[in-house]
Amino acid sequence: MLNQILNILSDGQFHSGEELGERLGVSRAAVWKHLKKLDDLEIPYSSVKGKGYRLQDAIELLHEDQIRTALSQRLDILDLLLDVDSTNTYLFKRAGDHMGKRYAVLAEKQVAGRGRRGRQWVSPFGKNIYLSLLASFSGGISSLEGLSLMTAIAVERALVRLGIEGAGLKWPNDVYAGGKKLAGILLEVTGEYSSHCQVVIGIGLNLSLSEEDARDIEQPWAELRSLKPDLSRNEVAGILLDELLQAVDSFQKEGFAPWQQYWSERDIFHHKEVRIIGGHHERLGVVKGVNRKGELLLQTERGMETINAGEISVRPAG
């Protein structure tokens, strides 16, 4: 019933308890009981005597039929959740029961969203895209080199389809707009090193964030609706999922190598000097693209060095 209430309130207008009860076929007391669950989800709403209830902001809830309309690739299972600890965690726990399946999950809210290097991914209700996809690979963990970069390319290609130009890629798997982070990616692997394995590919994409929502974000951030205000959240979710499925198809057939040049042309640090920070070590160099494995090529005073993805950070040298 909470889903039904949210669908009614999603227009951002006032609706009385009597109206809600009539539309749902329940008592006003039952409506009030479910409205209290909005507090648990940290969804801001107002209650005004004589007017009723309204959400602080109009929201567009996710709808499976609208999302599937955008898909051109096979998807076996799609779950839409009101809230979850993390979409990646949700799928990772279910991976063993779905070998060979393409299983996607989208959530309205994450209470423990995760980014790279153990960071929190800020995930307010009904505003952004929190997407994870479970996919199986036959070549083992060693065959996954470059998949994180391929995922970032999928995000960038989705943005182009949505009419947003100029998004940039940051190694190993971030998407930027105007020098600010727009999307992040987290891959988690389970299975055998040299045979069948499964990957949970997680994407967090900022669609609409307020300053209050973003108070815990520790770096400059961007949002899609500042770039294109009239975007449909379901359209964004559908196109993003479709591009991700296409990227998985391409990667399974050819790996990352055919996309080396594509990546380099969109790398925000290509031909620029950067600092590579990892653990207690730091090095300076000029970014010269990536190799067929998706490793960063860095021209340093010692010559050309190859940087593997891991717990490292790439930052401007200046």
Rank of each mutant, 00 (worst) to 15 (best):
M1W: 00
L2R: 11
N7W: 09
S10G: 09
S10L: 01
E18T: 15
G25P: 00
R28Q: 11
E42F: 14
I43Q: 07
V48F: 09
V48E: 13
K49N: 09
Y53M: 00
H63S: 13
E64G: 01
Q66L: 13
S72G: 11
S72E: 12
R74E: 09
I77M: 06
I77K: 08
L80F: 01
L80I: 14
L81V: 04
D83T: 15
V84E: 15
T87R: 10
N88K: 05
Y90Q: 07
M99E: 12
R102E: 00
Y103Q: 10
A104G: 01
K109T: 03
R116E: 09
R116M: 11
G118I: 10
R119E: 11
Q120E: 11
P124A: 07
F125L: 13
N128E: 09
I129G: 02
Y130A: 05
L131V: 03
S142L: 08
S142A: 13
L147A: 04
L149P: 06
L159N: 00
L159C: 06
R161S: 12
R161A: 08
E165W: 08
V175N: 11
K181M: 10
L182A: 11
L182P: 10
A183W: 04
V189W: 03
V189K: 04
Q198I: 05
V199I: 07
V199T: 03
G202N: 06
G202E: 01
G202I: 02
I203R: 12
L209H: 06
E212Y: 13
R215I: 08
I217Y: 11
A222K: 05
A222D: 05
E223M: 14
L231P: 06
S232T: 06
R233N: 06
R233F: 04
N234F: 00
E235F: 04
V236E: 01
L241V: 00
E243S: 11
S250E: 14
E254W: 12
W259L: 07
W263Q: 06
S264E: 14
S264M: 13
R266G: 08
D267N: 12
H271N: 14
I277C: 15
G278K: 13
G279M: 09
H281K: 10
E282R: 15
L284Y: 15
L284M: 11
G285K: 04
V286D: 10
K288V: 00
G289F: 13
L297A: 02
Q299D: 09
T300Q: 13
M304Q: 13
A309D: 12
A309Y: 07
E311W: 15
